[in-house]
């Protein structure tokens, strides 16, 4: 018997009044793989992330985390089961330092997770996480004084602090320079290599095609296509709806 996927979205629909923001979407994200989620603005990507992380109740459908139905669990309980996310509009705690942001998350996890309660040095772990995303030298800057790109990396480090099994990243590369984006892609591959299920919502399709194992395309709330990057790149429907020239190789 194979293990269930780390994350499974089953027939999720979200309606706001008469508008259907997400329309009967089903998809899965495997541990150790990077799953891309692309689509034009307003396709329902962030709403779907909100449903997965518990910030938005779905009108119908279910969300499973490592085989367990978490649809009715509040956000913080999903987080404690290993679901972390970042936000399209930055949600750093601006009044704390970069280190303070990450340390708070380490602390919360260490306290909730009684097995590893003893001997956790939240300070050191927070510094290590900042080093991993390359921001050790900015550790003591207030988060609201960081550039958008750096702030996104702090948000990533903070999400990693809860040692997630599923990591949801909402447009993490917007605001990054080209060089930073390349580094960022490398970090994502590393994380997947460690067994994490990474789900990536991103407009930078070259990053998505470079790092993702599977790509899903959303359009007007519904799943338009799914497959590996090369098949998505060539899919005429995706080219028409979203990619245009970007999908054409060369």
């Amino acid at each position: 018997m194979t293990d269930p996927p780390a994350l499974k979205v089953i027939g999720v629909t979200v309606r706001f009044g008469g508008n259907v923001a997400v329309d009967d979407v089903s998809l899965a994200a495997q541990a150790g793989a990077i799953t891309g989620l692309i689509g034009p603005n307003g396709a329902g990507k962030t709403t779907l992330f909100n449903v997965i992380s518990g910030l938005q109740p779905p009108t119908s459908g279910a969300v499973h985390l490592e085989g367990a139905d978490v649809t009715r669990l509040p956000t913080h309980k999903r987080a404690r089961r290993g679901m972390a996310r970042t936000f399209q509009r930055l949600e750093l705690f601006g009044i704390l330092t970069a280190h303070g942001n990450v340390k708070l998350a380490v602390d919360v996890r260490a306290r909730a997770d009684r097995d590893i309660r003893a001997g956790v040095n939240a300070d050191a772990e927070a510094y290590a996480l900042l080093e991993r995303v390359g921001l050790l030298d900015l550790a003591h800057m207030r988060a609201d004084s960081l550039s958008t790109g750096k702030a996104r990396l702090v948000e990533l480090a903070r999400a990693l602090a809860i040692r997630p099994k599923v990591l949801l990243l909402d447009e993490p590369a917007s605001g990054l320079t080209e060089e930073e984006t390349v580094q960022f892609g490398a970090i994502l591959r590393e994380l997947a290599g460690e067994g994490m299920a990474v789900v990536l919502v991103e407009h930078d399709v070259s990053l998505v095609f470079a790092v993702c194992d599977v790509v899903h395309v959303l359009d007007r709330g519904a799943l338009l296509a799914s497959g590996d990057p090369s098949s998505i790149r060539a899919d005429q429907r995706v080219l028409d709806a979203y990619l245009g020239d970007a999908g054409v190789p060369g």
């Binding site: 972390a84 705690f93 919360v108």
Partner: peptide, 17 residues
Amino acid sequence: DLLLALRESPAACATLG
């Protein structure tokens, strides 16, 4: 720090557990 974080973004707090 926890209370200040809650003041700024309850949603982000929840995603950290």
